[in-house]
């Protein structure tokens, strides 16, 4: 069985945010919820200033704190060693969010995509509204991606958490995670750590790597190279 990991080449990454945006697009993610995100750091004093942009996502930890914390096994490791979430088992206790050292799990406190249920036009009869647009297309969000629903709730309902699934629905079709696919810099590589010839292993061997918060013992599987 595979052990999926991602390598992010920070030398190639230009911090454009395409991963953040396309992740929301692919996975029908509501506003204020982020499966893929980033942190930035500005260090130094003018004119010797260093600016870093580091993309983040679920680390699909080998020793996942969220899986341990979940009281109902809703958060689990699958046969590809991905950390996945079963929306039908989740009780919305948010223990996983507390346990995750990377803040990559989000809770649906509200019925999602309320933006597309707002029926107030800025010009009555003249402009559309979120509600009219979404309803006109028969979807909860106009650009709803139905492929997402093949392995996870297409849109996660109110009361449960949600997180990155490494695009398991795309992996199932032999496709890369969408952030990898849509990165214009080619900075992301997904692959199997158990396969010694995989691109991820070659990159890790060639460049060495860093992980986020390795000291907390979660064994994260998002590796940053060429930082």
């Amino acid at each position: 069985m595979a052990r999926y990991a991602m390598v992010i080449d920070l030398h190639k990454c230009v911090g454009c945010g395409a991963c953040d945006i396309t992740c929301k697009n692919e996975n029908n993610v509501d506003r204020d919820i982020f499966w893929a995100h980033h942190f930035t750091r500005t260090a130094g004093v003018f004119p010797n200033v260093k600016y870093e942009h580091v993309p983040t996502l679920c680390n699909h930890c080998d020793n996942a704190a969220c899986v341990k914390a979940c009281p109902t096994k809703a958060m689990y490791k699958d046969d590809k060693r991905l950390t996945l979430h079963d929306p039908d088992k989740c009780i919305g206790c948010k223990s996983c969010m507390q346990a995750c050292p990377y803040d990559v799990i989000s809770f649906n406190a509200k019925e999602p995509h309320g933006f597309w249920r707002d029926g107030n036009p800025v010009i009555p009869e003249g402009t559309a509204s979120g509600k009219e647009t979404a309803e006109g297309l028969g979807q909860k969000i106009p650009y709803y991606n139905p492929e997402r629903a093949t392995t996870y709730a297409g849109i996660r309902p109110k009361g449960i958490v949600e997180k990155c699934t490494f695009c398991d629905h795309r992996l199932a079709k032999g496709e890369e995670p969408y952030c990898v696919f849509s990165c214009p810099a080619g900075a992301r590589t997904a692959g199997d750590l158990d396969d010694p010839t995989s691109q991820v292993n070659l990159l890790l061997a060639q460049y060495g790597y860093k992980q986020l918060k390795p000291h907390v013992g979660t064994k994260p599987k998002v590796y940053y190279i060429r930082y």
């Binding site: 899986v67 341990k68 914390a69 979940c70 009281p71 109902t72 096994k73 809703a74 088992k89 989740c90 009780i91 919305g92 206790c93 948010k94 223990s95 809770f107 649906n108 406190a109 109110k158 009361g159 449960i160 958490v161």
Partner: peptide
């Protein structure tokens, strides 16, 4: 809880690693 009606599932979906469980 987001899904209080599922509270009792902590018994039958019991996760021995989870203190919450």
């Amino acid at each position: 809880l987001g899904r209080p009606e599922r509270f009792l599932s902590t018994l039958y979906n019991f996760n021995p690693q989870s203190v919450t469980s």
